[in-house]
Amino acid sequence: MMKKLYLSEKNKKIAGVCSGLGEYFNIDPVIIRLGFILFSLLNPLTIILYLIATLIIPQRNNHTKKIAPPKNDSESKEK
């Protein structure tokens, strides 16, 4: 099964990019956040890349379809 990168909903601080990367690479998101801060101090282009990643990386779709229980046939026959 192929791993997919998603924005994280569990451990997000701003948009979930760093925590999503942490989940994908099995790394603590704090390390990725510290790296992001360091790189953004050295090169402000990192902030633009973060915004682009926020737009490109999809959100995980955790919504499951709720299926209505089947109607009881005896109720409909009585009417």
Rank of each mutant, 00 (worst) to 15 (best):
M1I: 01
M2T: 13
K3F: 00
K4P: 00
K4E: 12
Y6E: 07
Y6H: 11
Y6C: 01
L7C: 12
L7E: 09
L7W: 04
S8Y: 00
E9M: 13
K10R: 06
K12G: 05
K12L: 11
K13H: 03
I14G: 05
V17E: 11
C18R: 04
S19I: 10
G20Q: 01
G20A: 04
G20E: 11
G20W: 02
L21Q: 05
G22S: 07
G22R: 03
G22A: 05
Y24W: 06
Y24D: 07
I27H: 06
D28E: 13
P29A: 05
V30R: 06
I31Y: 12
R33K: 15
G35F: 10
F36W: 07
I37R: 03
F39T: 06
F39R: 15
L42Y: 00
L42E: 06
N43S: 11
P44K: 12
P44Q: 03
L45A: 15
L45M: 12
I47T: 03
I47D: 01
I47R: 11
L49G: 04
L51I: 09
L51P: 00
I52D: 02
I52S: 09
A53Q: 02
I57Q: 12
Q59W: 09
R60H: 10
N61P: 06
N62Y: 09
H63Q: 13
T64D: 11
K65S: 13
A68S: 12
A68R: 08
P69I: 03
K71Y: 08
K71N: 09
D73K: 15
E75D: 15
E75F: 13
E75A: 04
S76T: 10
S76D: 10
K77R: 03
E78N: 09
E78Y: 14
K79F: 03
